[in-house]
Design a binder for these strands. Structure first.
Lengths: 349, 349
DNA sequence: CGCGCACATGACAACGTTGTCCAGGCTCTA
DNA sequence: TAGAGCCTGGACAACGTTGTCATGTGCGCG
């Protein structure tokens, strides 16, 4: 296909298909190319009369500056990338929104994508964003080896990891206190008399899941309670299997009297299972969920502040971009135990 | 500042600051620029031996193709823009995710931003995305005049509106059946014996809100019930004022025996208020909410399929981009009444 | 043995913008 | 009134990539 046919588009008749350029605007306004550039960018050195003529041509032609060319020339894109696990997860909504707000305050756009917890997809996405020359990256890691980002970081791409630490690379990280949060949640159950406490969480290869498991173990150990394997379910998140795991813990010779859930998705399923039980089983979940206060009993949770995670990470990112030469740091945000009833039930055995 | 100093960055020591280009790779591999381009793009006509040498240079230098330059040359960005109202709203999470999935299937990235229900911000965002030369736009309109997009559409930017119709421009629109859904929800309450039914919704300038209000009125009229002004609250969404509106309807000489909520945010607040009442008040809400089945009573809702909205819109967008010459169309997706208890309560007066 | 042909490779222009630099016209002052 | 200085505006190169086209090499076949 000849080069000149490239721009033909699917439209017929009056549709243009070719966008006007500064050159076109300049021709129409009867001025030089650079003068148009000056007007578009609000640079000084143009008489009001010239500016008016240029502006008129811009409006008439429907000119819009081509930022690709601008980026190519200037080196900065004024956009940042966000790689997260799942846009549809209610936990990440406020986080992305917070990142977006900070980006907006700095005049940057947000490009984002979901890794679906797949390390390859995370890498593919992150590198695609780098190819677009985003100024910075906020990453919620799916994988545990981020050496593939080394050339990017060296080339000046600001990078901050959120929610989970980076693997094999020295970078800023913003985390919740998963260990401490889980520990205090489980300790809360213990303080209310429980000893046989179940734990249902995600795969321990996910850092947050591992930390929360560690918190569970620590609380149990603090209280001198040996943990039985049958009390723990690791690596299940789909509703069906979580349901079965919960039911298993609640039956048998020495059933648990309380359950600690490792994340919001597990929580909603376990809460459903517990609602079906005749026996009252205590419950504490990691991550807050909507309407938790309206259930009977209210759902006690260890809440993390997703928006604060996103905001902190993004601010850190722009501090890197603003040239504040800061050594990579690990920032840990506190969690908050919210008691609503389910975690204060006494053991029923 | 001299042009050559432009690339100095905040890093010291071994940091590079300059990204290698194809030229650098070519020099290192001892081949021509175009050969590198061929290897990077997997074009034929390169001997395995040459390809190996080039690949080696690429890895050694940490080269990553600059997509800005590529876009400038090729005209297509392989990215689409999504302008929505609030990323943090649980309704839009699945919608964005669906758009993203379709984009991914077509090899495109997603750039998105929240308009925060502000028409100016919507326009600013949409135009910024156009300046980046996104191939297409999915817009959840905040404003009601989209003529500002005319030059873009003419220039070939595929455009689809979702959730609410476009204003003053002829374009594809994907909507839920807001009118029919609300009408059936209210009819459901009427069928259970209610006559004094309250409606709490968003500002009628928002299309979805207006349609749902219209559905409410239609259902009431179908049943021959004159609507009292005091039964309707329009334009309030913040929890405090929704709470007051609901409480007002429930007091006075002829209190409502049922409430219909116009969206998910109103629903969560009204459900809270109703939980505090001694009297049982029937309730139906527009939009499904998580854990609605676990509340006492379960929350009856008119559910729309957010993911389907996003998927349909995105698919439509790519059909435009794939050159299927299709006249703008209005697609309406059905809603579904999910009965869980709250909508089946009899009037208590 | 020579001709043409296929194939690998590279030189070069172009994409649309911005930074640099220079020209021309103006004002102000000596 | 001439020279200095300022202000406006334009010519031109460069950003990194890809499409086009030309070149060179080696091979098969008549």
């Amino acid at each position: 296909m000849p080069e000149t046919a490239r721009r033909t588009d699917r439209f017929s008749g009056t549709r243009y298909g070719n966008r006007p350029t500064m050159k076109d605007v300049a021709a129409r306004a009867g001025v030089g190319l650079k003068t148009v550039s000056r007007v578009v960018n609000g640079e000084p050195g143009v008489t009001p009369e010239t500016e008016r003529r240029v502006q008129e041509a811009i409006d008439a032609l429907g000119f819009r500056r081509n930022d690709s060319a601008r980026v190519l020339r200037k080196g900065r894109t004024a956009s940042i990338g966000l790689v997260l696990e799942d846009l549809a997860d209610p936990f990440y909504g406020p986080l992305s929104r917070a990142v977006e707000e900070v980006a907006r305050a700095h005049g940057a756009l947000l490009i984002n994508g979901s890794s679906a917890e797949d390390p390859d997809r995370e890498q593919e996405l992150a590198l695609a964003l780098c190819a677009r020359r985003v100024d910075g990256l906020v990453i919620i890691p799916a994988g545990d080896d981020h050496r593939y980002l080394e050339p990017e970081v060296k080339a000046g791409v600001a990078t901050v990891f959120v929610d989970r630490p980076a693997g094999r690379i020295d970078a800023d990280v913003v985390l919740s206190d998963n260990f401490g949060g889980a520990r205090s949640g489980v300790a809360h159950l213990i303080a209310h008399g429980h000893r046989r406490i179940g734990f249902i969480g995600d795969m321990p290869r996910i850092h947050t899941a591992a930390e929360r498991l560690r918190g569970y173990r620590a609380a149990m150990e603090d209280a001198g309670i040996p943990v039985e394997d049958s009390w723990m379910s690791l690596g299940v998140t789909d509703p069906e299997r979580v349901r079965r795991a919960a039911e298993d813990m609640l039956t048998g010779p020495a059933p648990v009297t309380a359950i600690f859930a490792g994340n919001n998705r597990v929580t909603v399923t376990v809460v459903r299972v517990l609602a079906e039980q005749s026996r009252r089983v205590a419950f504490v979940g990691f991550d807050d969920i909507e309407l938790a206060d309206l259930l009977q009993p209210g759902v006690t949770v260890v809440a993390q502040d997703a928006a604060a995670l996103g905001r902190t990470a993004a601010e850190r990112l722009f501090r890197q971009l603003d040239g504040e030469l800061i050594a990579p740091e690990r920032i840990e945000l506190p969690t908050r135990l919210i008691t609503r009833g389910s975690g204060e039930l006494p053991p029923a055995d």
